[in-house]
Write a protein that binds this DNA or RNA. Structure first.
Lengths: 255, 255
DNA sequence: CGCCGTCTTGAGTCGCTTCAAGGGTAGTGG
DNA sequence: CCACTACCCTTGAAGCGACTCAAGACGGCG
């Protein structure tokens, strides 16, 4: 944990940058010390539940490595992933006794954990830190609203394209202008999880990705790894841009 | 504005209760005075835009009466309503230069407005009030995630049922145990807006509601006003509950 | 009264889901 | 070392729910 907070320079070395929240705390000796006292690092393996849905769980924290899925389940078993959390995002529902969502490990992962009570007490003592957490919550809200647009309006092909672009860009390393664009997409989750995130089925996901490959938008290295050959086309297919130059998209689906 | 903050008792008289945020401010003379100094009440008529999408707008505040729709639009014109705001909810994106969503008047309405800059300065001076705002944002996030479940998993019939229940319960008057259950649903928005909210089309909404009426779940007084005849059935149709007693639902759709 | 917007209803089409089966790969034990 | 199992991904075929297009009904307003 000490290492976590003492290495704000490691973002230089290509690792994930610190969350604003941690950067803030790391910069102040008092905050750092308080935080270290209540934090503990825990490993979870893929599939494990960190917080159950509707469950009273006193655990909040941040992702160090790996991916968490935030999901809701209906009484009859249908489920929807309402968020994916990568490092260095925060997880857990602060200021509520029960969590309205389940949080599970989508991959093996390491988490920096706090007891919710201790964390909230810490925030209450340091309003400027609570402010950072609020900004993180606002970002999450923005992301949720963007995803609602995707689920409500977009065809499956657009959803898959949007998802791939999201994965692609969240993997961009380095901050600001030094940010290096990736061409390789590493999908850290299964087709099934992708389907649950995108509100569709694993079969449809599979068909769509194969279709993209046939059209030359991307190259499939293996089921979890693609090379993006034409990012502009992918952005167009995602519905994010009204197409600038391409003429009518010929679908090779029937060929 | 003074009237707004001086009438925390009016929730007794059947009016909307104050938002936690206002209740807090009304209870402290200093806060109340500061808030009154930066607030102004404005009326908007149905269809007017309060904040444009992606636009730099310095306006935030709370709904006094009427309904706001929070929506996002794709480059090709498709749109999705990502939230409806009733009194006494807060509106506007604090701590961001641009708003990622548009905020429009879904009905004629009255709003208590603040300049974003002044409001943020006010929050910075009073962390306990900022805390209230954070709780409101967290509630909004919960609602957004619930709606993602609806958009990603539910069939249209379930979405419409969920929507009607939401409208029904948000109209329940009185707080806590004194809350009085409504049987009448007043849909404050058009079929088209409902469709945009539910990620479907106006035609499908219409068909579904007529179907509910044929099945005896509700009675249509006029296109904006229904009486709920069987709330348990409606809850079942919304997918919120695995049905306890009803056997297989006969659809009168084909009759 | 006639126009206009909203809601309703009908018919046809299509995208996606569902169901079913086959292939690839990793982990396990004989 | 090689079967064996299990899981994931892929592919095919059929069915259906919801969208699209089109037209008619209702109500409000100038």
């Amino acid at each position: 944990m000490e290492a976590l907070l003492s290495t704000s320079e490691r973002s230089e070395s290509g690792r994930q940058p610190l969350h604003r929240f941690f950067a803030h705390c790391a910069a102040d000796a008092t905050l750092r010390e308080e935080l270290i006292r209540i934090a503990h690092v825990r490993g979870f393996s893929s599939g494990e539940t960190i917080v159950g849905e509707g469950e009273e769980s006193g655990l909040v924290g941040a992702v160090i490595s790996g991916v968490l899925r935030v999901q809701k389940t209906m009484p009859d078993g249908r489920q929807q992933i309402v968020g994916l959390l990568f490092a260095p995002n925060l997880f857990g529902r602060v200021f509520s006794r029960v969590s309205p969502v389940a949080i599970e490990a989508a991959t093996d992962c390491r988490l920096c954990c706090f007891s919710r009570a201790a964390f909230e007490a810490f925030l209450a003592r340091h309003p400027s830190v609570e402010h950072d957490v609020m900004l993180a919550v606002l970002d999450e809200l923005d992301a949720a609203q963007e995803w609602m647009l995707l689920l409500g309006c977009k065809a499956v092909q657009e959803r898959v394209a949007s998802f791939l672009l999201m994965i692609l860009h969240q993997a961009d390393v380095g901050g600001g202008a030094a940010r290096r664009r990736q061409r390789m997409v590493n999908v850290p989750i299964t087709r099934h999880d992708m389907a649950v995130y995108l509100g569709t089925t694993a079969e449809t996901i599979s068909r769509t990705i194969q279709d993209f490959a046939r059209r030359g938008v991307l190259r499939i290295i293996n089921p979890q790894r693609f090379e993006v050959l034409d990012e502009a086309r992918l952005a167009f297919l995602s519905g994010r841009a009204t197409d600038p130059g391409d003429v009518d998209e010929p679908s090779l689906r029937s060929a």
